[in-house]
């Protein structure tokens, strides 16, 4: 019951933050609300026992992307343009897709169900072999760094490439502000 109350409260907060962030026309407050949204997401991940994901979400989603948004905000106007388009069609599409997603979620296995398909594949192998193979208690690190070392190498190269791409786009030396 307590768990249900906590999760319900967090989801409720998420919904409120999302609505306020969409309604707000000040870009600064939208950016800060996006950070708060990520932080609440991180708390939900903690309550789902996914500490590593929660850590990443808190550090990247709530911390760094907020700072990057603020850095990028210098080039934007302070307020959003208010557009009075006809939003009926968008509303219908969003409502329809939302209903479909909720309908599809009834087919998902219950959270923590040991018989769920995802726990029948390679999961048991990792759980029983990480300690004998590597002698480390954190399964996530074991899978990420060793069993799936190729994937992590790929991710690192993706991040590197992203940095390189931004460097090529913005860092050509002509448009830089050297005096700040």
């Amino acid at each position: 019951m307590a768990e249900f109350l906590i999760n319900g409260f967090l989801i409720f907060l998420l919904a409120i933050i999302a609505v306020v962030a969409i309604r707000s026309i000040k870009i600064f407050s939208t950016v800060m609300l996006a950070g708060a949204y990520s932080l609440i997401c991180a708390i939900i991940f903690v309550s789902l026992d996914a500490v590593d994901v929660a850590f990443t979400e808190a550090a990247v989603g709530a911390g760094l992307s907020t700072v990057l948004y603020i850095a990028a905000m210098r080039h934007l106007p302070k307020r959003e343009k208010v557009v009075n388009d006809n939003t009926i069609f968008a509303l219908i599409v969003c409502f329809g897709v939302g209903c479909l997603l909720i309908w599809a979620s009834f087919d998902l296995p219950v959270i923590g169900d040991p018989m769920a398909p995802i726990h029948q594949h390679v999961g048991p192998y990792y759980i029983s072999n990480t300690k004998p193979d590597m002698g480390i208690p954190n399964l996530v690190t074991g899978v990420l760094a060793s069993y799936r070392g190729y994937d992590t190498l790929g991710e690192t190269v993706v991040i590197f490439t992203a940095g390189l791409g931004v460097l090529l786009l913005l860092g050509d030396g002509k448009n830089r502000d050297k005096n700040e």
């Binding site: 760094l64 990057l68 690192t156 991040i159 940095g163 502000d177």
Partner: peptide
């Protein structure tokens, strides 16, 4: 790599003049 990329992203975004 992650620390370097994040730092350089921040510096590029905030020193870009438009």
């Amino acid at each position: 790599t992650v620390a370097g990329v994040m730092l350089i992203l921040f510096h590029l975004f905030s020193s870009w003049q438009g």
